[in-house]
Design a protein around this nucleic acid. Structure first.
Lengths: 190, 190
DNA sequence: ATTTAAAAATAGACCGGTCATTATAGAAAA
DNA sequence: TTTTCTATAATGACCGGTCTATTTTTAAAT
């Protein structure tokens, strides 16, 4: 028997909607309706309401994102190829242009900017997420022999570039921007 | 004198708030309150309400952004230095970490992601804005002798990197990410 | 195994408040 | 006087959150 499949399902639907529309634009009623859950259950599993829901969504999305990045970074010893593999994975998630898979490619840009001046708790979780992502890149670069100071600025720049191409890809509903970045990646490592 | 200073003021306040909080999180009442305008005036100048306000905000912000980019790209014949000058300008706008100047550095990421799956009209305006920004970069690169195919992918990548770095800077309320990107810019042009 | 009491989960009505928008009137400017 | 602008009140829809009641599940006691 599913221990708390209702809770998981709620979190899943909320994750999709928050990353797609933002949490400000996503009402609890929409989450309830799309997940077929009554309001009582939501406040049973998430007593602190929407704020708790947002926080758990961001935290679990971060874990998923980090694991996903690590997998692709491990796919090749050469960091250039590994990063390109990761970008390739991201562009795959844009095959369905209108409903990109927000679970395997959580674009934190929306939630992190929504929270930046409004919800300090969420903002910090987003910031920590970005920091961890960059740490993953940094480690990979250093392992492959890059100087630590260069690895640091490159990790931040790569993270920024990927965030940016996701914003672009979502805005124009095309994976072309991702493919373009893919081609410029090698020059980062010269 | 007050030809339509009320209208301009309304647009100014709305611009600040929309870029800071997103348009979903910004109520008309907040705009009215912060601008000291009565509700009647808003619907007098913007008969189509919030949607018209958002559209005009994005359009005017885009114009401002494009003009600003052009100025900095013209600041030096060398594209590397010109881009670094622009990044320097951006990092200057983060001196007041809690209230960055959204007029001189409109971060479209928030509004463009908010609108992507919700307001097609706004989404298109954002997309066109990104396209024009990239055209500016492209022209600069080609003028300086870069091959057109390389200029194209580089323009997209640079745009993405700048978008991303603004997302990072806003999230962690620091201009450090911008400064880091500044250091990696030269490698783009090798 | 059956009964039973407690706990967990579901269900939805309800609340005060705020949302964008409209309506209506008065003031200012032309 | 006619147009433009200001000022509020009222509108209905929806917001997140609370509340109480009911059903389902769990576990203990017989």
């Amino acid at each position: 028997m599913k221990k708390s499949s209702t809770r998981d399902h709620l979190l899943e639907v909320a994750t999709r909607l928050f990353h797609l529309q933002g949490y400000q634009a996503t009402g609890l009623n929409q989450i309830l309706k799309e997940s077929g859950t009554p309001k009582g259950s939501l406040y049973h599993y998430f007593p602190d309401g929407k704020n708790q829901l947002v926080k758990e969504v961001v935290e679990s999305s971060s874990q998923r994102l980090l694991a996903n990045i690590q997998i692709h970074l491990n796919s090749d010893p050469n960091p250039t190829i590994a990063v390109q593999n990761y970008l390739n994975h991201l562009s795959e998630n844009f095959k369905n242009l209108d409903t990109p898979d927000m679970l395997n490619m959580p674009p934190f840009a929306l939630i992190s900017m929504e929270s930046a001046f409004e919800n300090e708790e969420i903002r910090v979780v987003c910031q920590e997420n970005y920091s961890k992502v960059q740490q993953h890149y940094y480690n990979k670069f250093v392992e492959s022999g890059m100087a630590t100071d260069k690895a640091k600025i490159l990790a931040v720049s790569l993270n920024a570039a990927i965030i940016g191409v996701l914003v672009l890809s979502i805005t124009e509903k095309s994976n072309e921007p991702i493919k373009m970045l893919q081609k410029t990646v090698p020059s980062f490592f010269l």
